[in-house]
Design a protein around this nucleic acid. Structure first.
Length: 424
DNA sequence: CGTCTTTGACCTGCGC
DNA sequence: GCGCAGGTCAAAGACG
């Protein structure tokens, strides 16, 4: 199975290389133009960085970015991650800590507000870490399609009650102090047209409702259309890992795989196998940095975490949620998160980025982790749906996580920057 | 036998 | 209208 994927990947990669060669050989001028654009982006980054450093009020502007129509790019350690088409849906993130609330909302306790409030904490905490907001040099934005970058631990969202959301939330939740995980969420408008704003999102939803009312088209089509229009909130994150499909504790069924444009790696589509739970996730690997996996969750689980009889997973993770995630908001589960993210939210920010081992110890001390000697991300291993041969949590949590760790530790400083590049 | 993956076909949205 | 790309469906096969 993996061989097939590899073959396909190689095939795509080969095609991609050929196309790239052709483009390079025949379009030198375009290459130059791209270089100029890159320089412009660099200049923009510098300008924004300077502006943000000189004004605390613009601090969040440094964290918020968006602009061009179809491409959001994250630069991780110099590699570009194309995030286009993953931020689709209005996201409601009434997290316990409100970290991800829409900045555009009037909520005084919005994510951004909290960030402002915690600015000093960020600064102090990041002093000892190579990972900080100061590292973000983001292009300025003129619209509401925002990407939030933060290395905050991910709070557990509550139910999808929603506020107006059109923002893209990218949360850098490092899987370790030396690795990077960028999570994000967004709305459909941001994906389909990054130049849109909240109004557009509302408009799309209204149009979907209108079509539903009309009922002129076949029910199936209408249904699909409505699904498209009223897409669930999405939450994406980047993980530097050799593993494509990380085990987040839920059971997923793969229902599709598509080749991604400009990427040799296919995108896999998964759906939660729990009846009535429409949560989906997409997994794709960065074409620029194959070690980076981008996982996008869509929707909110309508069942406890984890729903599945997956052995130790539930035993390991339930305490996490019981400690804060669910109790902080509601009984329902919303945006699915890998357990390492869920765990991180219970860790003091400083300790998280100062010393991963302290996080491991603390986690194990509260009974969250069974295997304190491995990694700070319990259960973050292969997804069984991927055909993992692991049959015990000890193997999965131990060995597989060990597989993840080395590469993460190897990468010392990962500066995350956002750039907006219109490749068109 | 149940679960899951694979994969071609189909649908939808969007740009030209 | 056409082509492209993303997303989904569903039949077939693999696997334990």
């Amino acid at each position: 199975m993996e061989k097939k994927i590899d073959q396909e990947d190689h095939h795509h990669h080969h095609q991609q290389q050929q196309q790239q060669k052709e483009l390079n050989s025949t379009k030198n001028t375009e290459t130059k133009i791209e270089s100029q654009e890159q320089q412009q982006h660099q200049q923009q980054k510098q300008q924004i960085s300077q502006a943000s450093s000189s004004s605390s009020s613009s601090h969040m502007a440094n964290l918020v970015t968006s602009s061009d129509l179809h491409h959001h790019q994250l630069e991780l350690a110099g590699n570009n991650i194309n995030l286009s088409s993953i931020f689709d849906t209005p996201i409601s993130l009434p997290f316990p800590y409100s970290y991800f609330e829409d900045h555009s909302s009037n909520n005084p306790n919005s994510f951004l507000d909290l960030l402002r409030q915690d600015q000093h904490q960020f600064a102090s905490s990041s002093n000892s870490s190579s990972f900080s907001f100061d590292a973000f040099t983001l292009p300025n934005n003129s619209n509401n399609n925002n990407i939030f970058f933060t290395d905050l631990p991910l709070p557990q969202p509550a139910t999808a009650t929603t506020k107006a959301e059109s923002s893209e939330v990218v949360n850098t939740a490092p899987t370790s102090p030396n690795s990077t995980s960028v999570s994000s969420s967004s709305n459909e408008a941001a994906n389909d047209n990054n130049n849109t704003n909240k109004d557009v999102t509302v408009k799309d939803q209204e149009e979907g409702d209108q079509q539903e009312q009309k009922g002129t088209k076949p029910q199936l089509k209408a249904k699909k259309k409505n699904q498209k229009k009223a897409r669930e909130a999405r939450f994406a994150f980047l993980t530097k890992s050799d593993i494509d499909n990380l085990d987040d504790g839920y059971r997923w069924r793969k229902y599709g795989q598509k080749a991604v444009k400009n990427s040799p790696y296919p995108r896999s589509y998964y759906r939660c196998t729990t009846v009535g739970c429409g949560v989906k996730k997409r997994v794709e690997r960065s074409s620029d940095d194959p070690s980076i996996v981008m996982t996008t969750y869509e929707g909110q689980h309508s069942h406890p975490f984890p729903m599945t009889p997956r052995g130790h997973i539930g035993m390991l993770t339930s305490p996490i949620l019981d400690h804060g995630a669910t109790t902080a908001s509601s009984s329902s589960f919303s945006i699915p998160q890998p357990r390492y993210l869920l765990t991180q939210q219970h860790q003091p920010y400083n300790s998280m980025y100062n010393n991963s081992l302290s996080m491991i110890n603390r986690s194990s001390s509260d009974g969250t982790f069974v295997n304190p000697g491995s990694l700070p991300f319990p259960g973050f291993g292969y997804d069984r749906s991927q055909g993992s041969t692991s049959t015990s949590s000890s193997i999965r949590d131990h060995g597989l996580l060990q597989d993840i760790l080395p590469s993460q530790i190897r990468s010392d400083t990962i500066n995350i920057q956002t750039t907006e590049e219109d490749k068109k």
